[in-house]
């Protein structure tokens, strides 16, 4: 492989890491509270607001059922408004973050749902407020499961970011399309795929390790 190609691969990897990193961060920041709200406002939960819950739930479902590629196209005007352009890594971050946020929300909701109701009840019996239950019981107890879910979200984002490359988002996907596909450079294609595989495995490994070291329930 030529030095030029290697440099190209490196800068594409950096672009991918940047896109995935920033969009993951944004998705966590909004998805975490979203997941908490989705759970606690459910009927029978500590802050039940059935109407709000249904409303949020339907938005999340709508966002999740729209294919990413379509979401990306639909969001072009929004992206232009926020970033100023619809091309490049920064522009890709908008649809990536937007697609990942409801996913993270559902993942967090699911993790919180797995927390034993008896533990919540015990905290309420001690006089905990709903906020205290969230901060002291639900989130800490669900942390390992949340980490597992966030790992999944990051891995999804790596895949999506490659897709974003297809419409000029930059990063490894962009490289694979421009060199590998359009210029028939199969070696570049395989290199990018190999790097993506390595990246996904690395994420999964780190996530699994983190989740495992956080568990204290005798499963580690």
């Amino acid at each position: 492989m030529s030095a030029k190609l290697f440099a190209l691969l490196c800068s594409s990897l950096v672009d991918t890491l940047y896109m995935v990193g920033v969009s993951s961060a944004i998705a966590f920041i909004f998805g975490l509270p979203l997941g908490v709200v989705l759970l606690v406002t459910e009927r029978g939960q500590i802050m039940e607001r059935p109407a709000l819950n249904r409303f949020l739930g339907s938005i999340v479902n709508a966002a999740r059922s729209t294919p990413f590629i379509i979401l990306m196209v639909l969001l072009i005007p929004v992206t232009r408004m926020i970033v100023g352009t619809s091309i490049g890594t920064n522009a890709a971050i908008v649809p990536l973050a937007l697609a990942a946020t409801p996913f993270v929300g559902r993942v967090v909701e699911g993790a919180l749902r797995e927390v034993d109701g008896g533990v919540v009840e015990a905290a309420l019996a001690m006089g905990a407020s709903p906020w205290q239950v969230i901060a002291k019981v639900l989130l800490p107890e669900a942390l390992p499961a949340i980490v597992v879910g966030l790992t999944l979200s990051v891995i999804n984002l790596i895949g999506y970011s490659a897709m974003a490359g297809a419409i000029g988002g930059g990063g490894l996907g962009d490289l694979a399309i421009r060199y590998g596909y359009q210029r028939f450079r199969l070696d570049v294609m395989f290199m990018t795929v190999a790097v993506l595989i390595a990246l996904v495995n690395l994420c999964q490994g780190v996530g699994d390790f983190l989740a495992k070291s956080l568990r204290r329930d005798g499963r580690n």
Binding site: D116, A123, G127, K136, L143
Partner: peptide, 26 residues
């Protein structure tokens, strides 16, 4: 009004110390 349960309902990620400290933190 303290309460104890059949299934104990302890927080799995807190130590014995942390579990007993919880009501005081609350």
């Amino acid at each position: 009004v303290g309460m104890i349960f059949q299934s104990f309902n302890l927080l799995s990620r807190r130590t014995v110390f942390g579990n007993v400290a919880l009501p005081l933190e609350l």
